[in-house]
């Protein structure tokens, strides 16, 4: 029988001894009470300004005209936190001047820092919040290859890219683990983003059912996929190029263990980076495993740190 977990961490159904999956991460966090309290609160409504279609100042003017309240997000100028409603029923949204995007989800594209004119691979692109952010950071020049293995989700990516007026996106439908550059007239990327499919525990504030159906088997299964996609991204990126790996889960099996795997098996190294977000370093020990000490230069984001969802982000440099 399925056992559900409600957003306040209580299990439902007869198997009341089933633990809230978030309990397993309590030993990793600094402030257990703050962690669980944050996981129960709904997320603020945040939008990203899409400079491909309108500058931030015009978006703010339009919100003022429409009576939509907002406040800036201190660590990222392109984000605005809305006072009340969701962004979908505003004129700036209709015009594609903004995109509803969870605050912490705007983190990995800024770490990847793609430059205008470059060739960038987004290995798990759909539904495209981060993909279109990459395009915006590149002034909609160069090429963003947005790949996903799920055709239904690809249509959401296409829809978002059209609404946001993105023209530098090439959409592909491949398994990221065996991605082929054969369609293209180039054979390596300057940068790659692997925002991997994951157990999504960190999205429990946005999606209260995120923890339903959580199993350790799924964590282990999806970790294999993550290792495969990240390995391919490293192989497909030029020496000296940057690969960013991110998830919205707390599970070390899907985070530090994946980085540890590619450090062992692929030509890459971890690159330390600063971020204005409050983060915790990656963990080097989890249950009976130990990880390469370099993972302490990767970043964990817990919901109570910045009032966001949970997140993990690592920056790698390709070495050969």
């Amino acid at each position: 029988m399925a056992v559900g977990v409600t957003r306040n961490g209580q299990t439902t159904g007869p198997e009341t001894s089933c633990m809230n999956p978030l309990e397993r991460y309590a030993p990793l966090v600094d402030d257990r009470d703050a962690f669980f309290a944050a996981c129960e609160r709904p997320l603020p409504s945040v939008v990203r300004v899409n400079p491909i279609k309108a500058p931030r100042s015009r978006v703010c003017d339009a919100f003022d005209e429409e009576g939509v309240g907002y406040e800036p997000v201190t660590w990222n100028d392109s984000l605005l936190r809305l006072d009340e409603r969701g962004p979908g029923t505003t004129w700036p949204y209709y015009h594609g001047w903004i995109h509803g995007q969870e605050e912490v989800s705007a983190f990995p594209a800024t770490v990847l820092d793609p430059q205008p004119g470059e060739r960038v691979w987004d290995a798990c692109a759909a539904p495209g919040s981060k993909t279109t952010q990459l395009s915006a950071l590149m002034d909609d020049t160069g090429i963003v290859v947005g790949n996903d293995n799920n055709l239904g989700r690809l249509s959401a990516l296409r829809h978002n890219a059209e609404r946001l007026g993105v023209t530098n996106l090439v959409v592909t439908h491949q398994d990221g683990r065996s991605f082929s550059l054969k369609p293209f007239d180039f054979d390596e990327f300057d940068r790659a983003l692997v925002d991997a499919p994951c157990s999504c525990e960190g999205t429990c504030r946005k999606n209260p059912t995120a923890l339903e159906g959580w199993t350790l088997n799924h964590v282990h299964g999806v970790a294999g996929v993550q290792k495969g996609i990240l390995s391919r991204a490293i192989q497909a990126t030029k020496p000296g190029g940057t690969v960013v790996y991110s998830t919205c889960t707390f599970a070390p099996e899907e985070n530090e263990a994946v980085i540890d795997h590619v450090l062992e098996n692929e030509d890459c190294k971890v690159v330390p980076f600063e971020t204005p977000l409050e983060t915790a370093p990656g963990v080097t020990e989890w249950e009976d495993e130990t990880f390469d000490p370099a993972v302490t230069d990767t970043h964990r984001v817990y919901p109570h740190f910045n009032d966001t969802g949970g997140f993990y982000c690592a920056k790698l440099e390709v070495t050969a």
């Binding site: 160069g142 990516l157 059209e162 993105v166 023209t167």
Partner: peptide
């Protein structure tokens, strides 16, 4: 309409914007 150029023909799901 595509913001860059690439080899033609190309078999992909999307190329720029309609």
């Amino acid at each position: 309409i595509f913001g860059d150029d690439t080899s033609s023909p190309i078999e992909v799901e999307g190329l720029g914007m309609t």
